[in-house]
Simulated scan of single mutants.
Amino acid sequence: MDVLVLGGGYAGLTVTRKLERRLPASATLTLVDDTGSHLVQHELHRAVREPDYVDDISVPLEEILDRATLREAEVTDVDRDARTVSLADGDTLDYDYCVVAFGAETAYYGIPGVEEHATPLKRLEHAATIRREFEAVVDQLGHDDPVTDADRAGTVVVGGAGLSGVQVAGELAAMARERDVADSVEIVLLEQELTVAPGFPEQFQRATRELLDEQGVDVRTGTTVTAADDARITTEGGTIDYDQFVWTGGIRGNEAMGGDRPEVRGDLRLDERTFALGDAVRIVDADGEPVPASASAAVRASATAARNVVAAATADGGFVDLQQWHWESPGWLISVGDDAVAQLGPTVVTGGTGNALKSAVGVTYLAEHGSLRRALGVLRKEMDDIEEFAELLERL
């Protein structure tokens, strides 16, 4: 029996680890990933400001896997009828059961000029590009030249105020302060919806907006981007001249799935032999509730996905007892520069406590799926006040 897992992100890695323990010894398990490394995506924005984070948040998959075989290759097509997976190098893999966990790509919605002129934030090279472009904006200010502040002003636009957009805007605002150019570089955050972090609880949205305002980010909600060129962004309300353009405005499916994010229900099954989870699909859970595209949801769905693959693979043609997944949010976390917002139940906290909670989540994830060394590296960089962190742990 051949089992494939496609994608080594949160969903793919976590379900692979569970299948390693639960599949019969006779089954072969292969994880296919185009980079060969697991990226801790929820910390990627940190690498924009602190390149050293790259060493902590990019974990070679071979260091993590036990019995699974890693195939480093790009998947170009999944033929569910033939149960084959085509790879960019020309090879084809057959499967008896497959888990689709590609994650998602950046969506540009066909807006003219956006894909050509904006930088997304999905990979390590994107973070490096955003940093390099921001430094170019700072360099062009020409502080030694006898010009006015208005002449020196630079504008950095971030399109999309979901979690990624808020976090990269916060990092850029912090970089501007660190380089003493906060008065000369304007960070503009655009959002089509009427609030930042749309789709999240109102208290969480409000606290996030307050931190953005405090850190000098020019937040413009209710603003729809309609076009862009190499110097100007057009919105329904007018134009914005820019020096740097970052786009985090939405997600779409992987090209191997035709760019689609097909819907799966609570059993996480695309068909009898193909399961899917994470951002690669749109999940409607067993209660009929749409599940947000998030790392937390991807990790939490993995137990049900692994259980159902094993149940289907060991049914011997008989009745397959598939588990239904019920999504329950454990809370929400977001970084805004050196600050953070954390919501647990109805309680929203910011400041040191918010940072401590976000760091605790990152350390726990890395210690389980990466290494203790990487986990401690993230903790050391994020937690200046260890006493506050210890005090928080005592209260939890």
Results as ranks from 00 to 15, higher is better:
R273F: 06
F245H: 05
D279K: 06
V181Y: 06
D230V: 00
R252V: 10
G249T: 03
A256S: 11
T235R: 04
V158R: 09
F275Y: 15
R206T: 15
A276M: 00
E263D: 06
V185R: 04
S184T: 14
D285L: 01
G162C: 10
E171T: 07
T195W: 08
R282T: 12
G154I: 01
A182L: 02
E210A: 15
V196W: 13
V225M: 11
T155A: 08
T221D: 10
G250L: 04
A276Y: 02
D183H: 14
A197R: 14
A173E: 07
G160V: 07
E191H: 10
A280V: 07
Y242L: 06
T239P: 02
P201G: 05
V264N: 03
V284Y: 00
E272K: 10
D287A: 14
D260F: 01
R206L: 13
G278S: 07
I283M: 05
D180Q: 12
D180R: 14
T208Y: 05
D279W: 05
E214P: 00
I233G: 03
A161G: 07
Y242N: 04
E202G: 02
A228I: 09
T226P: 03
R282D: 13
E171S: 13
F204Q: 05
V246W: 06
G199V: 06
E214N: 07
G249S: 09
P201A: 12
D287F: 01
V225R: 04
R273S: 15
G238S: 11
V281I: 09
D243P: 00
I187K: 02
A173S: 15
A286T: 02
A173L: 08
I240T: 12
T239W: 08
D271K: 00
E263V: 12
V157I: 13
V264F: 02
